[in-house]
Amino acid sequence: MGTYNNLKYVWKRYGFLLKQLVSRDFKVKYKRSVLGVFWSLLYPLLTMAVMAIVFTNVFKFTTPGVNYLSYLMTGLVMFNYFSEASNLAMSSVVANFSLINKVYMPKYIFPLSKCVFVGINFLLSLIPLYIILFATGTGINVYHLLLPYAFVCLFLFTLGFSLILSSVAVFLRDMFYIYGVVLSLWTYVTPIMYDISIIENPTLSFIFKLNPLYWIVYFVRRIVLYGVVPEINAWLYCGLFAVVFLALGILVFKKTQDKFIYYV
């Protein structure tokens, strides 16, 4: 109850600031671009098209039983949320140092606002995803109503991970380079453009499944591509990863935030 009242107070006090920071990001992002917010719809489609051309023609990837474009697009939309949000959030504390140094405000508001900002973009990118689902004949089913569970898990996991990244980046600027490499590795170990079944080595396959994003993408694909309710372990892993990383993120951020001011 105390926590709830606390959250209510924080929302009342800083909700407007959060909205302003998110709307600032939107205004700046689409400033002087002719297509503006349409890019949020167009961009995922174009990325998908490029990857589809490369991976079906050059590497001859196929996904038996399901449409490859739908398969690729579901993976891309989910993974892109994570990579874009965590990447922006990582630099958010450092970038806003001039503010942190002058006015008191909760510092977590910067990574949080980035996760929310990219989250809105993510919701927009569901439009091209559904266009692809219909265009390829994959269609929709009633279990799509369960998808918000995966979205919430993805958001919480990303937020937790971003809190860790953004505080570590304050002390170690090398993170900007390291994480760039980590992200590109992460793109390939998450089965976005290929099916996990092509990994034949059982040890490697086990390691691949330690990836939180594997389970979130898996959860979504069970529903979108196969039209079934995800198995109980998929529900569990998604929820567990989300809660654990969020708790870890809050802990790390809280422990380090008072020292930020000396390092930026």
Partner: peptide, 22 residues
């Protein structure tokens, strides 16, 4: 300190106000 130079004065009044806690 809270101004975003890419935004207009009108937008900055709201942004900076929010930063000041209004």
């Amino acid at each position: 300190a809270g101004f975003d130079t890419q935004l207009t004065a009108r937008e900055n009044i709201y942004l900076n106000g929010a930063i000041m806690g209004y």
